[in-house]
């Protein structure tokens, strides 16, 4: 099922926004193929009529009251920012 080539690795890396040097693509493809090949043993398992398990917590979502009890802490929010100006986070200019 899995057949990850260099191009696929590059595509995944792009989706994940991770820079991978060209010469690392091939070895990484090998590793990922190894891991995914091993993972494919799951196809032996009969999972007809089995519900996918998203959480082990067998409960419904708890709700919060509609009360404003947070915010008003721009300083804390911005404190660790690599770059901020006038209480904004700043990033390289985006041209739309």
């Amino acid at each position: 099922m899995s057949d990850i080539d260099k191009a696929t690795v590059a595509k995944i890396a792009r989706l994940a926004r991770i820079k991978i040097e060209d010469d690392k693509l091939e070895p990484l493809a090998g590793e990922l193929n190894n891991i995914l090949g091993w993972v494919e043993q799951l196809s032996e398992v009969d999972t007809d009529n089995v519900e996918p398990m998203a959480s082990v917590v067998n409960a419904k979502l708890r709700w919060r009251d509609d009360v404003v009890n947070d915010g008003d802490k721009a300083e804390s929010v911005l404190k660790n920012a690599p770059k901020a100006e006038y209480s904004f986070f700043t990033v390289p200019k985006v041209i739309e």
Binding site: R64, V68, D72, K73, V77, L78, S87, F89
Partner: peptide, 30 residues
């Protein structure tokens, strides 16, 4: 729990959850 009010100073209505600080978790508003 941050306010939804319009027109506040930049980043004044932001909780650490909204800023996606590491380890922050969502809880839903009824």
């Amino acid at each position: 729990g941050a306010s939804t009010e319009f027109g506040a100073e930049p980043n004044a209505q932001v909780s650490l959850v909204d800023a996606a600080m590491p380890g922050m978790l969502p809880t839903i508003n009824a």
